[in-house]
Design a protein around this nucleic acid. Structure first.
Lengths: 211, 211
DNA sequence: TGGGATCGTATTGTATACAAATATGGAAGG
DNA sequence: CCTTCCATATTTGTATACAATACGATCCCA
């Protein structure tokens, strides 16, 4: 509801009201609120009331910057620990991405699936539970979904190419190379997001908090 | 209870049992378990049962490595945004640390207070809610407390000196310098921890999970 | 003896009731 | 017209009951 805009930034989230709206009791609503709070999608006042957090474009930039650093780190660790078997799985995932972007009209769902698998394998090979936990709070899949449809065909193709290069870095077990590519890959995705966001804002699709 | 060793690694954490032990109902226990889980102090099976996580020395190394990176990043951001007023507050905190380590027998409590304030100010000036949230899950104050008493007087003095150097970097608004010092500062703390841990293990104070 | 079904027990998920804390609106006073 | 205070209405915190699920031991049958 937050991500769809049904609940605008700043809206109060009263447990009772949400419970009734969702047809459940307050207990599961409370748990959900706590998780959303830890993901910074919800903020709480000093007196324990919950409100929809105000995700300005600066917050998104902040999140992407941290994600670039952490995924870069993950790529470095993965390169140092890469197995031939995992490498093969990454190739499979990127072939799916390649197939999705080569179509006349990009298959965004296929792209996202392949993309998710690709990054999940890296995180798995990186073998750091904490790193995985930190990245988990940073990557809001619904955000990715909502915006991926607005990425240009060109941007999707480039993404596929960067994955190719990552595979090359992994094949050579070159951690520094993998980290550099990954960091750039995420930051490019950020700018694609920012461009798409600006475009949507101009079309009036996104309501900014300032309005 | 986990950190004191009262609950050994691998012990099952049944809500009812904990509730009775703590004299509260299951509801607050559930919330606590969820938070401990997000901090990786507790793990859950695929069928939702909770157990004390197994924090091997590798996990601690992992956490420190990530913390070094993130606090380094925070120091860089803080240097770029530093105000004279915040700088003054950091000096105050480090004077407390200085006073604590200059005593014949180090005042560990005073040291920890000053240390906490010092790092909190940096995080505040860094002005990234997400970075603060990520670091929050990484810095288990009880872990710091439990081990700080075993740090050598020499290590505490050196820590004070590194804070001095951080202040110098902040005074010059030199982000790269601040990041470098901070990263080294945390990694040094890790090795002090690892040394102390080894010493404790030899004395039999710490029971390893392997036993 | 080994593998698998089954039933009792243990544990978690959810709903609901009530207590405590907090916010709100209006009346009184300056 | 603004502030202060209080009564009332919201909202959250906790306890408890019951339902759903998972575990483990036992029994049964090759």
């Amino acid at each position: 509801m937050i991500l769809s805009g049904e609940l605008p930034a700043g809206a109060q989230l009263a447990e009772e009201a949400l419970a009734e709206k969702c047809g459940v009791s307050r207990t599961p609503v409370r748990e959900a609120l706590r998780r959303l709070e830890s993901d910074l999608l919800v903020t709480r006042t000093d007196t324990q009331r919950s409100f929809v957090a105000d995700w300005s474009i600066d917050d998104v930039a902040d999140a992407f910057e941290l994600r670039a650093m952490l995924e870069g780190k993950a790529a470095r660790r993965a390169a140092e620990r890469m197995t031939d078997q995992a490498l093969e799985r990454m190739c499979v995932a990127n072939r799916q991405i390649g197939a999705a972007v080569r179509k006349g009209v990009p298959d965004v769902v296929g792209f996202l699936e392949g993309n998710r698998d690709f990054h999940a394998i890296i995180l798995e090979v990186a073998a750091s539970r904490r790193l995985a936990a930190l990245l988990g709070t940073l990557i809001e899949q619904p955000v990715v979904w909502r915006t991926a449809h607005h990425y240009s065909h060109e941007a999707l193709r480039r993404s596929h190419g960067e994955h190719e290069e990552l595979i090359a870095a992994f094949a050579r077990r070159d951690g520094a190379w993998a980290e550099a590519i990954m960091t750039g890959h995420i930051l490019r995705a950020y700018h694609a997001y920012a461009d798409a966001h600006r475009g949507l804002a101009e079309q009036g699709v996104i309501r900014e908090a300032a309005e």
